[in-house]
Write a protein that binds this DNA or RNA. Structure first.
Lengths: 112, 112
DNA sequence: GCTGGCGTTGACATCACTGTCAAGGTTTAC
DNA sequence: GTAAACCTTGACAGTGATGTCAACGCCAGC
């Protein structure tokens, strides 16, 4: 499939896919005319990336998941490096929630 | 007081203060040599700005607070426009905390 | 064979705030 | 009187992911 279709299926843009490729997260065979050519595995990969981005990871954080899938695992979260990223992010979220709670209390006091 | 001292007292940089001025949040008398000259009121103003930035507001959001203080109120949060900003931010925080909780649950499940 | 829609690369724009540098003027301390 | 430390303005850099535009190539339908 070509880049436009992959983008649509994965809910993103061709521009974003080219960027992921530039960052080494995605690679594409080329058709004889130079067009990028993707398969179902690429679709799974991009969907994993998008899902992670949507919950607040940055692109670099998605790398272990991508590599995990490339190594043949069905879920990107099955590899130690991915687990480490998940664990770290979990701690960040807990910290952030705590911080937001403090800020919330400050605002409520201001409003009170 | 001059810009360097104000920056230090307010815990920021001269660069940032010039930026606030450029954005119309801060104004400065000029000494005969062209140097910016600030007083205690400016210090209060900048501290208010910094406090708001630190709890996640952007510069534009601080404008109502700054104007509130300029109008003579002792706290920037005393004016209706400021209250509106605080209320909006409170709702955003609540939404964000809820979202983070959902993300947290997702991650915990992944790690499961 | 033309038009429209897709693809290609490369480059610049965005947001918000700040760092940093250049090239110069001023003040302070010795 | 000179060096260090401050000030001035203006401009460019960088973050992260993506939008957007330019200038061009390819292909399908009519």
């Amino acid at each position: 499939m070509r880049i436009g279709e992959l983008a649509e299926q994965a809910g993103t843009s061709a521009r974003a896919l080219r960027y992921y490729e530039q960052q080494g997260l995605l690679s594409a065979r080329r058709s004889s005319n130079g067009y990028r050519d993707y398969d179902e595995e690429d679709l799974r990969l991009v969907r994993e990336i998008r899902a992670l981005l949507e919950i607040g990871f940055n692109l670099e954080d998605t790398r272990p998941f991508v590599e995990c899938i490339r190594e043949g695992h069905s879920s990107g979260a099955e590899c130690p490096a991915s687990v480490e990223v998940l664990t770290r992010r979990l701690a960040e979220i807990d910290d952030y929630i705590a911080r937001l709670r403090r800020i919330r209390a400050t605002i409520v006091k201001e409003l009170g």
